[in-house]
């Protein structure tokens, strides 16, 4: 075998308990985790992308009914939720920054704030779902969505097409909410570790990668908000 002296000295490399056996250096481990999360987010783009594609097709076909459906959404609640998520993105970014600077308490505070904001988002989402349920806007046998297409008083809403809009609304926001729940769970786990002081400027990979995931979930909402709440609002 063409071996020259090993590139890393094992004894030195394994001083950090967070360094797993198969990595040579902390740098390599961190880079692997970081790339892994980015690649995972790429798969998430395609996962949500499939839904955006379905949305695009039906919005193109049934624009009027989609506009009517969209106008039944509560923009105040949706807009508030957008703001809540943006705030939570800030707190995550600050948590990572605190970890970079080694401010142990600050990490915990920022992560708890993030989870609270996440729960506020889910709560508001729950209120919206409840309203839709009360109004019979949930797809199914009791679905009822009377009215006319925005801007065309003499064209009634096609119930089936409107039902497709609400189906997509519930699936897209539902899967987004599921991602939020997973994110809150991740942060709960990481907060426990942060309380025990596991993260320091040389090792904060979990905070960073979970943060990337959270920002991604935020970005999905940034698109969902105008696409679901703001179709044809000028009518």
């Amino acid at each position: 075998m063409h071996t020259s002296p090993p590139a890393t000295v094992e004894g030195v490399a394994h001083e950090n308990p967070a360094l797993l056996h198969h990595f040579a250096t902390e740098e390599q481990q961190k880079n692997a985790a970081n790339l892994g999360m980015w690649v995972f987010l790429a798969t998430e783009i395609m996962f949500f992308g499939g839904m955006f594609f379905a949305y695009l097709v039906y919005r193109y076909w049934y624009f009027g009914d989609f506009g009517a459906g969209s106008q039944s959404m509560n923009v105040t609640l949706g807009g508030t939720n957008t703001a809540v998520l943006i705030c939570s993105s800030l707190t995550v970014a600050l948590a990572v920054r605190a970890a970079q600077l080694g401010k142990q308490k600050m990490i915990v505070v920022c992560l708890i704030l993030t989870m609270l904001l996440g729960l506020v988002f889910l709560g508001i989402k729950g209120v919206e779902y409840h309203d839709k349920f009360v109004e019979h806007h949930v797809p199914g046998p009791s679905f009822y969505f009377p009215g006319h297409v925005p801007g065309h008083v003499n064209i009634p809403i096609n119930q089936q097409h409107a039902q497709i809009f609400f189906s997509l609304y519930f699936i897209m926001t539902g899967l987004h909410a599921l991602h939020m729940i997973i994110g809150v769970g991740l942060f709960a786990f990481i907060t426990l570790h942060a309380m025990r002081g596991r993260y320091h400027p040389n090792y904060y990979t979990p905070v960073e990668t979970a943060g990337l995931y959270w920002h991604f979930v935020d970005i999905i909402w940034i698109y969902l908000f105008p696409l679901l709440y703001l179709i044809d609002r000028s009518q």
Partner: peptide, 12 residues
Amino acid sequence: FHLGIFNPALGG
């Protein structure tokens, strides 16, 4: 839930 997304009878 018979949403209609893929069902031509329901506009899908």
